[in-house]
Computed example of a mutant assay.
Amino acid sequence: MNVELRHLRALVAIDEERTITDAAIALHLSQPALSRTLEQLESRLGVRLVERTTRRLALTGAGQRLSEHARRILGQLDDALSEASGRSGPRPLRLAFAWAALGRHTVPCCATGGNATPGHRSRCAAWTTPKRLCVAARRTWPSCAPGPPTAQG
């Protein structure tokens, strides 16, 4: 079984983006190249990882389990490479939010967020639905409750 890091990155991107097209954009690949990479991974493992129809895409049970392992493996690899290269400083903080969650403050917050702390990178990514926001939060902080977060005011 010859699985490469690009295969794991592809599966994680597909899981996070929920479409082949969006995952390909995130990985800076063409859609056909990403589809071939997924087909290679499924062929090498001998198991279907993604159920695809013209209207939806979903990871199978095996795909979900492998995606969770791949996410952990890729994170550990990033940590090891940072440590080996002497760049083991603070990791970037990733925040996800529904695009209009901050109302009129959304754009200014995205625009200046990275300037608040020198030496830290920022990247603004919009989540189109509350469900995607909740899924991202649970993946980033596994200790989150299984339900969607509640507003505390």
Results as ranks from 00 to 15, higher is better:
88 S>Y: 09
145 A>Y: 10
84 A>T: 00
105 H>Y: 14
69 H>N: 07
124 C>P: 07
52 R>D: 06
23 A>F: 06
2 N>P: 14
152 Q>R: 14
107 V>N: 10
149 P>H: 07
96 A>L: 06
110 C>G: 12
109 C>Q: 09
34 L>Q: 01
44 R>N: 08
135 V>P: 02
114 G>W: 02
132 R>L: 13
46 G>C: 05
14 I>E: 09
35 S>N: 00
77 L>N: 00
42 E>C: 00
67 S>I: 02
131 K>H: 14
24 A>R: 00
53 T>G: 15
115 N>G: 08
30 S>T: 12
19 T>E: 07
119 G>Y: 06
88 S>W: 07
109 C>E: 09
23 A>W: 01
13 A>T: 03
3 V>R: 01
87 R>N: 15
120 H>W: 12
9 R>L: 06
83 E>N: 04
134 C>H: 15
115 N>C: 09
17 E>S: 13
114 G>M: 03
87 R>S: 15
80 A>N: 05
83 E>D: 12
77 L>M: 09
121 R>I: 12
146 P>R: 06
106 T>S: 14
83 E>C: 06
34 L>R: 01
4 E>H: 09
12 V>F: 02
58 A>I: 13
18 R>M: 09
150 T>N: 08
51 E>R: 14
115 N>M: 06
146 P>T: 09
46 G>A: 00
39 E>P: 01
135 V>K: 04
128 T>Y: 08
86 G>N: 10
57 L>E: 06
101 A>Q: 04
25 I>H: 09
72 R>M: 10
18 R>T: 14
49 L>R: 04
118 P>I: 01
129 T>N: 13
53 T>S: 15
78 D>G: 08
57 L>D: 07
34 L>K: 00
53 T>Q: 14
64 Q>A: 15
144 C>I: 03
85 S>A: 12
101 A>G: 04
34 L>S: 01
57 L>H: 08
93 L>T: 13
10 A>F: 04
73 I>W: 11
117 T>M: 11
72 R>D: 15
119 G>I: 01
7 H>W: 04
54 T>Q: 07
151 A>Q: 10
124 C>D: 09
25 I>F: 04
70 A>E: 06
94 R>T: 10
147 G>R: 13
9 R>S: 03
117 T>K: 08
127 W>G: 04
